[in-house]
Computed example of a mutant assay.
Amino acid sequence: MRRALYGLVAGLAYASVPQTGEAETHIIEMRGLEFIPAEIDVAVGDTVTWVNADVMPHTATASDGSWDSGTMEAGDEWSLVIETEGALDYVCAFHPTMTGVINAR
């Protein structure tokens, strides 16, 4: 009887611990000289993938210079795992009016 009770208590304790969700992948398209969507909310550990759906090359370059996709030709994609909380501003190095923000929580 004690073993059954201990097992029940242990099971209840486990069930009350919040379970972490799996990381998600978020897609941002480069199209029409825009990042679409231009602003997204993600969780730390999620992956953001940029897809160049435009006819010209672009980059996804952190405004603080901490990461850079390099030149992405039409059809290319590049991914980044988000490792820190906060607002991550980025731009296309070729087209400075193309800007975006990743809000990581």
Rank of each mutant, 00 (worst) to 15 (best):
2 R>F: 11
3 R>H: 09
4 A>I: 14
4 A>D: 11
5 L>N: 08
5 L>A: 12
6 Y>L: 14
6 Y>A: 13
7 G>T: 06
8 L>H: 14
9 V>I: 13
11 G>H: 04
11 G>I: 03
11 G>V: 03
11 G>M: 05
12 L>H: 05
13 A>H: 10
14 Y>I: 15
14 Y>L: 11
15 A>I: 07
18 P>W: 04
20 T>H: 15
22 E>M: 10
23 A>D: 00
24 E>Y: 08
25 T>L: 04
26 H>A: 06
27 I>F: 07
27 I>C: 04
28 I>A: 02
29 E>L: 10
30 M>R: 14
30 M>N: 13
31 R>Y: 13
32 G>D: 08
32 G>K: 09
33 L>C: 07
33 L>V: 11
33 L>F: 14
33 L>Y: 15
35 F>K: 01
35 F>S: 02
37 P>A: 00
38 A>W: 12
38 A>G: 12
40 I>D: 00
42 V>N: 00
45 G>Y: 03
45 G>D: 01
47 T>A: 03
47 T>H: 04
47 T>L: 04
47 T>E: 07
48 V>D: 07
49 T>F: 09
49 T>E: 14
51 V>D: 08
52 N>S: 03
53 A>V: 03
54 D>A: 11
55 V>N: 12
56 M>C: 13
57 P>G: 07
58 H>S: 01
58 H>F: 01
58 H>N: 01
58 H>C: 02
60 A>W: 06
61 T>Y: 12
62 A>H: 00
63 S>G: 08
64 D>M: 07
66 S>H: 02
67 W>R: 00
68 D>F: 01
68 D>S: 04
68 D>I: 01
68 D>L: 02
69 S>F: 00
71 T>C: 12
72 M>D: 01
73 E>V: 07
74 A>Y: 14
74 A>G: 09
75 G>S: 03
76 D>A: 06
77 E>D: 11
80 L>K: 08
80 L>D: 03
80 L>P: 02
81 V>S: 08
82 I>M: 02
82 I>F: 00
83 E>R: 09
83 E>T: 12
83 E>D: 10
84 T>Y: 07
85 E>Y: 04
85 E>C: 04
87 A>D: 09
87 A>S: 10
88 L>W: 15
89 D>R: 11
89 D>M: 09
91 V>S: 07
91 V>L: 08
91 V>D: 07
93 A>E: 08
96 P>T: 07
96 P>I: 06
96 P>N: 06
97 T>L: 09
100 G>Q: 12
101 V>D: 01
103 N>A: 12
103 N>L: 15
